[in-house]
């Protein structure tokens, strides 16, 4: 546990020293909203379309971040330094997942207001924000878990920028389904609809299964 905290502190310190992931992912998200405006020719969106745009933008921003998640460790020998220490190796995976989760929350703090201003038709009142929060919590968990696992896998391949997204995209389809379907009624015109339990169930099950799987498999991705 203390190892996770030590690693986490290092990640946050690095991001604070040289902000890289959070600004890049946020900027990418906002720019994507602009792109969607022109691509769809819509001034405002709601319902299915709004939920889809939000989830897809978040998905691609995550993939952008995952590509950089391990670069410092790989290129500056952080992996070796960590492997030389007498600590539990899974701690690195846990720390990376928590880091990615924290970054996603920060990115969403930028993306959601931008989305409300630029594209979203229905207003964003407290109820909508609360429901968004619940769904995004589960979404972020899934994105962090898969991002941590796929990032660690891709960083050791020669074509890492290609392999990572190619694996992550299909793997995350269930998250997209769960999130988009859950958010569609929340973001629809004429008042926020209820959250459907089964979509939260799908997201929760996904997070649980891949969380455990990533926890069990992460160690195998570290050794040379």
């Amino acid at each position: 546990m203390s190892t996770v905290l030590t690693l986490l502190r290092k990640e946050l310190l690095l991001e604070r020293r040289v902000p890289q992931l959070v600004p890049a992912m946020s900027l990418f998200g906002v720019t994507t909203f602009v792109v969607f405006h022109f691509a769809l020719g819509q001034r405002t969106v709601e319902g299915d379309l709004a939920a889809g745009i939000l989830v897809v933008t978040l998905l691609f921003a995550t993939i952008l971040g995952v590509n950089r998640l391990y670069v410092a460790d790989r290129e500056e020998g952080g992996f070796d330094a960590f492997l030389l220490a007498p600590v539990d190796r899974t701690a690195l995976g846990v720390a990376k997942a928590v880091t990615l989760f924290a970054f996603l929350v920060l990115v969403e703090l930028v993306m959601l207001p931008a989305f409300a201003i630029l594209l979203l038709g229905p207003g964003m009142d407290l109820e909508v924000v609360a429901k968004l929060g619940v769904v995004l919590l589960l979404v972020n968990l899934g994105l962090s878990v898969i991002g941590t696992l796929v990032g660690a896998l891709a960083i050791q391949t020669r074509a890492r920028d290609l392999i990572g997204p190619l694996i992550a995209l299909p793997l995350l389809v269930p998250v997209v389904i769960g999130a988009a379907r859950a958010l569609s009624p929340v973001l629809s015109e004429g008042g926020a609809g209820a959250l459907e339990g089964r979509w939260l169930g799908v997201l929760g099950l996904y997070d649980l299964v891949f969380g455990l799987l990533a926890y069990a498999l992460f160690d195998f991705l570290l050794e040379d």
């Binding site: 690095l14 040289v18 410092a72 500056e76 020998g77 070796d80 330094a81």
Partner: peptide, 9 residues
């Protein structure tokens, strides 16, 4: 050969 240190820290 590599210092095993983070360059930005």
């Amino acid at each position: 050969h590599e210092p095993l240190l983070y360059r930005d820290l």
